[in-house]
Structures are given as structure tokens and as C-alpha cells.
Design a protein around this nucleic acid. Sequence first.
DNA 1: TTTCTACATTATAACAATTCTAAACTGTTG
DNA 2: CAACAGTTTAGAATTGTTATAATGTAGAAA
Lengths: 139, 139
Amino acid sequence: MLNNSQYIEKLRSSGLRPTKQRIKICEVLFNTEKTFHFTINDLVKRIGKSTNDKISLATVYNTVHAFKNKGYLKEIPINSDQSYFDTNTSHHHHFYDETQKDLIDIDDADVEPVKINTRIPGKKIKSVEVLVKVVDDKS
Amino acid sequence: MLNNSQYIEKLRSSGLRPTKQRIKICEVLFNTEKTFHFTINDLVKRIGKSTNDKISLATVYNTVHAFKNKGYLKEIPINSDQSYFDTNTSHHHHFYDETQKDLIDIDDADVEPVKINTRIPGKKIKSVEVLVKVVDDKS
DNA sequence: TTTCTACATTATAACAATTCTAAACTGTTG
DNA sequence: CAACAGTTTAGAATTGTTATAATGTAGAAA
């Protein structure tokens, strides 16, 4: 929940020029009460609803990748025909409802810390992500 | 490590006709000491190396999906431009080396059981998968 | 064995998500 | 302002995957 000049500052400080497209995408992604999950397609629709100046699809892709690289977004590892992103960059996990094709956050507090008792020499752990697949009770 | 007549039996018992293409793919996937990860593209190459009778790409896709549905293969949830499959269908997890784009098994014994302290009403848990992303130590 | 039929395979077309391209545009710096 | 590097853009190209429709085949029945 920031205003435009704060987005401009945020972008500039991370080496991204604060263009009007990027500021608009910041608004759409971060001017919300709650964090959310989205695909590129979802995002294009949200942008369409909130402005008349359309943003090119290529720009949406570029911006999402730039934001992901800067850590403003996380990509959710899931097998799908399209990529899912998350505006919640805090450490947390996901349910994936295979029946409804729906992603739901799992609060970090609701998952006991995952302990990995093995390592790969020369590598350090960057993240540990848990995906809990669920289906309808009866099925 | 089965022979052809055992694959035939396996296929038949799960309601899949034991065609020569499916038997060949069984050999390529399951006649190995160790389990492994693969993409469709990898599999096509492996098939090419082990036979001169080429199998149509569509058949490879169909067969992999059929085997996945029957539980002979697992799909690994990871963000990639292509789908990864695993001939190891036992419960286990993965490291993903982001530097080398390489998947490595984590033995189930090396991960403390993941406890999820929340549920979705009307849904039951089908699987709990842990993806540990690693990068080079120094980076 | 021959016939029948539902299931499989095939090559190719279609499709959808994503990336590339090259020209036009725009923030920023001097 | 001028200059330039970074950005946006529309559309083409690419890539992984799925659909199509004709041909082939395993298995059952006659």
C-alpha cells in the first residue's frame, strides 16, 4: 500500500527506471489489502480494468520478470501450462487444489520447520518450498 | 528391472494394451539400476538411442501421461519451460540446483516429516512435496 | 484362423505461453 | 537542450504440448 512517489523511489533504488508502465503495474500488484497469486494473463486483465492506457504484453512479461529478479514477486513452483506468481514474498507455502486448480497460501506458522538432513557440497540452500496437493474428500 | 513379458503383464493389468511402443518405453524408463528424472525431449533421445524403430512424439506424450496416471511416473513440480518427470515414484523430495538447472533426489529419510497444521474443509491431502532450491555457495 | 472393434499410433496441424526483434519512445545525465 | 542508454511496442517467431483424422493393431468372438 504505497503511493506513486513511493513506487518511483522503490523502482529507482533497485535500478529500474520508473516508467509509467512499471508504476501502473506496481499499483495493480501492490496496492492491495491482501497479497494474491496471478498468471500473466490474470495480470493483463487486472491492468485492463484499472486503466485505459494499455500496456503491451511484452512489457508485462518484462516487468514481471524484472520484479521477480528484484525479489518483489515470487514464482510458485507448480506444474501448469502457465507460470504462477505471488505478491506475497514472505516465507510461506501452498496448497494446490487439483480439483479446482486453485492455489491457497499456507501460513508459515502452520508448517513445522522443514529440516533437510543432507546437503550438496558447494551449494547453499536458497529456499525450501512445500507444495501440498489436495483433492476433494470423497475422491 | 523387468523383462518384456513382465512389462506386458504390468501394462495389461492396469488396463493398457501392451503395444510395442509402450513396451519399448517401459524398457527405456524402467530397465535401469537407478531411477532418473527426464523431460519428454530427454525421453525421445533415449528412445532414439535404444532402437531404430522411431516412436511418434505424440505417442511419447500419450504414454508418459498414461504412465503418470497409472502411477508409474511422477511429475515434479518445478518452474520450467518443460515438464519434468521422475521414474522414482516413492515418496521423496528434490533439490533444484538453480545454477546448473539440475534436479537431485532427496531421500525421504533425509527430510523430517512435514507437518501441516491447517486443512481445507472438504479436501484431503494427496501429496506433500518439498522443493529445496540451491545455488553456488559463494553466490 | 478370420473377422470385428475399440483402442493406439502416426504425421501433421493447431494452439498457447513465452521470447525475440527492430523500430520508436522516454528517463536521466551532462 | 542534446545525447544516450534503457524501455516499450506490435508483431513475428519459437517452443512445448495437445488435437485431429486417417491408418494400424491387440484381443475377443465367431
